[in-house]
Every structure is written in structure tokens, then in C-alpha cells.
């Protein structure tokens, strides 16, 4: 299982990279678009579609699992702070189970939609016929990876609870240096 966990961490890190690249691209494309529109009266005709179809979705879905592993999905932890480790383990089992169900369902529905779009060669109408399947593929990729991560956490937590020992180590769930984004 540690091997599997390390493998997932590697994929999460690659996905994080891709999300970071999408961020940088959004910034660059919008700035170029704005400047070109002002200075040369010729905005980038593809900027709007590229960003709204692919890049924003890329930032979100590629960082979905990494954000969970980094503990950056905000939660209300006042109660958890007062609980003994075993009870924390139980709450984490509940969280991982419901998360697993939801994201597995989303990933499954997303997979069918992606295959459907790919097989029928769907493109959006317009000067550039953007294919829709790459955007749709982001859903099962991001949610699927998160579901795998949640499954691994679930198994680990259950093992710990069943044996009463810390077979799989989990740190206290913690955000980015305890900071939010408000």
C-alpha cells in the first residue's frame, strides 16, 4: 500500500504541475489579449473559448486531488480538535467514504460522457471547432484520482481502527500553514 500511495502522490504532483501551467497560461493569454485589443485592435479570437472550455476546468480538476492531499480543502475542525485520536479516525472514515461515493459517481458519469463525445467527434460550432472531449476528460481524470486517494485513506483508516495501531500514518489534517484564502 505505501507503494500505491507513493504512486498516487507522483500523479498528484504531475497534475499539480499541469494546474500551475494552466494558471500561468490564463494570465498570459488574458494579458496578451487585452494588450493586443488596445494596441492593435486585434484581440485573440480563440482566447475566450480556450480559457472557458479548457483552462479553468484544467486548474480545478488537475488540482482536485493535490488540494485534498495538501489538506487545503477548508473544513470546520473545532469539534475534531477536541476529539481523541480514535474518534478522529472514525470521522475521517466517514469523510473518506462519502467523498469516495460522490467522486466515484462523478468520475463514472464523466467517463461515459467523455467516451460519448470522443466517439461521436463532438466539436463546438465556430471558426475553430473546439473538440469537447478533452474538457470532459478532465472530470474523470481529476475526480477519479481523488476517488483513488480517498479509497486509500479509507482503507488505511479502517486498518488503523481495526488493529488499534497506527499501521498507516496520517498527520493531523492541516491546511497551508493554517491559512485560508479569504
Amino acid at each position: 500500500m505505501p507503494t500505491l500511495s507513493r504512486l498516487l502522490a507522483r500523479i498528484e504532483s504531475v497534475f499539480d504541475w499541469l494546474a500551475a501551467a494552466a494558471m500561468l497560461m490564463i494570465m498570459t493569454v488574458v494579458v496578451c489579449d487585452t494588450i493586443l485589443r488596445y494596441a492593435f485592435n486585434s484581440p485573440l479570437s480563440w482566447a475566450y473559448d480556450l480559457i472557458s472550455i479548457y483552462l479553468v476546468a484544467g486548474v480545478f480538476f488537475f488540482s482536485l486531488a493535490g488540494t485534498y492531499s495538501a489538506g487545503a480543502h477548508v473544513n470546520v475542525d473545532i469539534l475534531q480538535k477536541t476529539l481523541p485520536p480514535k474518534a478522529v479516525g472514525v470521522t475521517e472514515v466517514v469523510t473518506a467514504s462519502v467523498g469516495l461515493v460522490v467522486f466515484a459517481l462523478i468520475a463514472e458519469a464523466g467517463t461515459r460522457r467523455t467516451i460519448d463525445a470522443f466517439v461521436s467527434g463532438d466539436v463546438l460550432s465556430g471558426a475553430i471547432g473546439w473538440p469537447t472531449w478533452p474538457a470532459q476528460a478532465l472530470v474523470p481524470l481529476g475526480c477519479g484520482l481523488l476517488a483513488l486517494r480517498l479509497a486509500l485513506v479509507l482503507v488505511g483508516r479502517l486498518l488503523n481502527l481495526a488493529t488499534g495501531r497506527e499501521i498507516v500514518r496520517f498527520g493531523r489534517p492541516q491546511g497551508h500553514e493554517g491559512m485560508g484564502f479569504e
Partner: peptide, 14 residues
């Protein structure tokens, strides 16, 4: 510079 909703309208304007 005219706002368009994409699709054939982009082509029309151009």
C-alpha cells in the same frame, strides 16, 4: 470591435 456570442457570428463579423 463588436461583441459576438461565438459560433457562426464570429465568422459573419469577420
Amino acid at each position: 470591435k463588436l461583441r459576438s456570442t461565438g459560433g457562426a457570428q464570429d465568422l459573419t463579423l469577420r
